[in-house]
């Protein structure tokens, strides 16, 4: 699996309220509608013009705050190819695995990547190809790989219960 896209770059501690505002948590129920307000309180330019395949690059502790899974669903539905960050808040990290949205921790890559450049993430080779060089990342642990390969937790559970 490989994904290439334009980079939207942000700083440290980007929280779930600016990724998907709390006021929408019970008024927007449709995933396509969630995608339309993604990052509304962080970067209106992203909300307006991000395209499928684009890649988000963040600093440390991406996704801190609320457990709201819509903060992952809205980006998954928008077609974001991957999130590369220096680190992820734990509930957000689990929500990404559970939604099947690929995430990569690489401080070196984050420091090297510039906003707007085109980056390729090669999941099989375990590397991020940027303008300033190529950065390796370790493969996911086996049980996490199973989750992502099955397309997220719900299809994974269905499969394990023999219901798919």
């Amino acid at each position: 699996m490989k994904t290439t896209g334009k980079v939207w770059k942000y700083g440290d501690d980007v929280n779930t309220d600016v990724i998907f505002p709390g006021k929408y948590t019970y008024t927007i129920k449709d995933r396509a509608e969630m995608a339309k307000v993604a990052l509304e309180d962080l970067d209106p330019e992203f909300t307006k013009s991000a395209k499928a395949g684009d890649i988000i690059v963040g600093g440390k502790n991406w996704g801190c705050g609320s457990s709201r899974e819509q903060a992952v669903s809205c980006l998954k539905e928008r077609g974001i190819g991957a999130i590369i960050a220096k680190g992820f808040a734990r509930i957000y990290y689990r929500n990404c695995l559970n939604e099947g949205l690929p995430i990569i921790v690489s401080s070196e890559a984050v420091d090297a990547i510039e906003a707007g450049e085109e980056v390729t993430v090669d999941f099989d080779a375990g590397q991020i190809v940027t303008k300033k060089g190529t950065f390796p990342f370790p493969p996911y642990p086996e049980f996490v790989r199973g989750l992502i390969e099955d397309g997220g937790l719900i299809p994974h559970v269905k499969k394990s219960l023999g219901l798919s």
Partner: peptide, 24 residues
């Protein structure tokens, strides 16, 4: 809900999880 960690005041191991994880 992320503030599920509150029950640690009663000595519980309590933590927040997302919607898919709760359904599972």
């Amino acid at each position: 809900d992320s503030h599920t960690c509150t029950y640690g005041a009663y000595g519980a191991f309590s933590t927040g999880i997302g919607r898919s994880e709760m359904a599972a």
